[in-house]
Design a protein around this nucleic acid. Structure first.
Length: 358
DNA sequence: CACATATAAAAGGTCA
DNA sequence: TGACCTTTTATATGTG
């Protein structure tokens, strides 16, 4: 990496479009913390593989020439120079005044975004208590039907980061408060993985928004940089859905795993406190916890989630704990400890005491 | 408080 | 060829 430390004056061509933050990752040689975030200005166009970075401080601007291939992650914000951690508490850029990542503008689009912001709730179902499934994550793939220059994307799109040394996709996040949160992994082939949506409507909105963002990136001379040809129905496929629910009573996981003799179940509390139950039809994986909370994942549709839960519910009832305590985590933990203590008196098998971690 | 453990799923690059 | 990387999300334990 080439890091000349000469101070220069601000280049006249700097505009809000040029404002970015850059994240210097471990191994680049600047710092050895995992992420060292610097408030930076970045100027483009850039020579292949490098970015010219202008760090603003009280003395003026410090020019750095960083090599993208050397582990530099560049992130562009929405008009404000600011440093932020990649996994920190959001809030980056995008004040309401500037255009959001996908300002469809029309009232319809606004309404669509507002609708998409609501988490999808399935149920309650008859004869299943008052259980409702809350969808917490939807993963989908979208095909933009054209190759994409990821360096252009990271330079031009808001809230984009790209570190080819770390991962081969460019990551774009929707963090506008007026639209549903979502994250896209954009690959150079034009394939996009969208995660973080909380409903079908939300993932559809996110796919359309990412397609629009990519299609509107300009090539530096006013024209579009990519010929995006995305059709929602044709090119979007939901790949995974995660939902959570609470059956409202504690569950005897030891009993549940014993009754299934390991054919569906895997329960190793030393490794992970949840029981893992893999249902074959529909193909859904359940994480079942003593507290009565249940996580469902692996589904391709809301219908599969519903079918799987309805099929699972009687089994959960079967292994309902006799002693029902109040549902605070502290009391649940106490109840669990008490239950395992009493279990140890009548069953000497107790694999839990062994700290054999393989 | 951050991170590890575990679950599903896709993408495409890298490495043994 | 398969394992890993990365992203997201709920869940709940333990460790530093």
């Amino acid at each position: 990496m080439n890091v000349p430390s000469s101070f220069i004056s601000a280049p006249p061509e700097l505009s809000w479009k040029s404002v970015v933050t850059a994240t210097i990752l471990r191994g680049v040689g600047v710092r050895h913390t995992r992420h060292t975030c610097l408030p930076l200005l970045l100027v483009f166009p850039i020579p292949t593989g490098t970015v010219n970075v202008y760090l603003r401080n009280c003395c003026g601007l410090l020019k750095l020439v960083l090599n993208l291939e050397a582990g530099v992650c560049v992130r562009r914000c929405a008009g404000q120079v600011e440093a932020h951690m990649p996994r920190g508490g959001g809030g980056a850029g995008s004040s309401s005044g500037s255009k959001g990542a996908a300002p469809l503008g029309k009232q319809d689009a606004f309404n669509e975004a507002q609708t998409a912001m609501r988490a999808q709730v399935i149920g309650p179902f008859e004869n299943h208590g008052q259980c409702k499934l809350s969808m917490v994550n939807v993963t989908a793939t979208a095909d933009m039907k054209c190759t994409i220059d990821l360096k252009t994307v990271v330079m031009r799109a808001r809230n984009a980061e790209y570190n080819p040394k770390r991962f081969s996709a460019c990551i774009i996040r929707l963090i506008n408060k007026n639209e549903p949160k979502a994250t896209a992994l954009v690959f150079k082939t034009g394939k996009v993985v969208v995660t973080g949506s909380r409903s079908n409507a939300s993932v559809d909105y996110a796919c359309k928004t990412f397609a629009r963002i990519l299609s509107k990136l300009d090539n530096g001379s006013g024209g579009p940089s990519h010929k995006i040809n995305f059709d929602l129905e044709r090119d979007r496929r939901v790949q995974n859905m995660v939902a959570t629910t609470d059956v409202g009573f504690p569950i005897r996981l030891e009993g549940l795993v014993a009754s299934n003799q390991g054919c569906f179940c895997n329960y190793e509390p030393e490794l992970f406190p949840g029981l893992i139950y893999r249902m074959k039809d529909p193909k859904i994986c359940f994480l079942i916890f003593v507290s009565g909370k249940v996580v469902l994942t692996g589904a391709k549709s809301a219908q599969q989630l519903e079918d799987g839960f309805k099929k699972m519910y009687p089994t959960l009832c079967q292994f309902k704990k006799a002693t029902v305590l109040l549902q605070t985590s502290a009391t649940a933990r106490t109840a669990n400890a008490a239950a395992s203590a009493s279990a140890s008196t009548d069953s000497s098998s107790e694999p839990a005491r062994k700290k054999t971690k393989t």
